[in-house]
Design a protein around this nucleic acid. Structure first.
Lengths: 219, 219
DNA sequence: CTCGGTCTTAACCGCATGGTCAAACCGAAC
DNA sequence: GTTCGGTTTGACCATGCGGTTAAGACCGAG
């Protein structure tokens, strides 16, 4: 078995990676229904059969791309949470880091939303990654939110990501309802301020509940 | 032109309405990609060509179903808002009515989410309806939230619907992350309590901001 | 019973899809 | 230069799609 032809003629990437990158581009541009073997092949400048030669099926290809995204997502979240000191003092930088990542991956955001709201076919993959992200966040939020109940960490995490993710999901549809572009720098900054505002409201409400009924920190 | 055959042989519905109902069922069960003429025809127990005879195209069929949903949505929202007195006292019943509707239409919720996060093809319809709903809500929330800024009514509305809608969107994916079924009665009740909790936090934060800087109610 | 419009159907078309395959290509080892 | 094995290709297949069409079934009006 001779080694694979070592000829990185195009940006020193292997053919398989070229195709994966092309798939990524196609996916964020045209969504899951647009992720056809033909489209990927054309984008990568290769024959359609090569897609199957290297990746077996389009479903496999999709899962790999999704895996990439979630790996980055988890890394970003981990890094955001890696601040020191009381989380109450650091929560806003964390939120900012989360928002930064989401803004940078806004097209993925819509894609994942699309996928998770769609068929059950690829649900297991999403499920697996989502569970990891949630466990991670709940763990880090344990010191400021109860484990169970209406103000529990899992609800707060879910709501926070809903706040952020849904904005990008609905952005294209908001064009008419709002006067200006929801994805302009100004609009994004205002949304960011809103998220911070919401988090402040939560923290305030959490601490007030704690001070009013110190016997029952479980909420 | 003689009148259409007045023979409601099957649950006194016209053929066109039977097909529309079938399309609705297919849509909420298999999503937009599953809404094929064949599937609808099979569901309705009629020939495939009939779908086109009555509705022209599958796209047209989809829009009609969506229109139905949004009409109901807007009606539910209007009725929820039709309470009297200070909105601050009535906000919780309103939220409950909103949640009631969403719970009753949870499959639609995922569908709309799926659609709005998908291709641009059917965006205009979603856009039109969404704009109406948003205008309505902002109007009713004007007395408790500023018109612009981070705590403005439009952000609050968007965030509130995100809280509610995303829960159903992600419900299937939450199975692994949470121990119990996110759609069980208990889980739904807890989520409902969470939404109320969030709204309370918002109201508190809003009134505090107002009392702290009464000169600038614009936020 | 016939007429005429409405409804319904099977058969068909063109197209794009995911996926396969055998043959051709090509650099390296001998 | 010839063989060898990984790589690449165009041609091909079955399937399902949206949509059309022409012919017939049905049924009330005359």
């Amino acid at each position: 078995m001779s080694a694979a032809r070592e000829k990185p003629k195009d940006s020193n990437k292997t053919r398989a990676q070229q195709i994966l990158t092309a798939a990524e581009a196609v996916l964020v541009e045209h969504g899951y229904p647009g992720l056809t073997a033909q489209a990927v092949a054309k984008r990568a400048g290769v024959n359609k059969a090569l897609v199957f030669y290297y990746w077996g099926s389009t479903a496999e290809l999709f899962e790999r791309v999704l895996e990439r995204y979630y790996a980055r997502h988890e890394a970003a979240l981990l890094e955001a949470f890696s601040v020191e000191g009381d989380i109450r003092d650091r929560i806003h930088p964390i939120i900012d880091a989360y928002l930064d990542y989401m803004e940078a991956n806004r097209r993925y955001t819509r894609l994942v939303q699309h996928q998770v709201s769609g068929e059950q076919t690829h649900l297991p993959a999403v499920q697996r990654h989502l569970a990891g992200l949630m466990r991670l966040s709940i763990d880090r939020l344990a010191s400021i939110a109860p484990e169970h109940g209406p103000s529990s960490a899992k609800h707060l995490y879910l709501s926070l990501s809903a706040l952020v993710v849904n904005y990008f999901t609905y952005a294209p549809a908001l064009g008419e309802a709002w006067g200006d572009d929801p994805l302009s720098d100004e609009a994004l900054a205002e949304r960011r301020a809103h998220v911070h505002w919401v988090v402040d409201a939560w923290l305030e409400h959490l601490s007030r509940a704690r001070s009013e009924s110190p016997r029952d920190p479980q909420g």
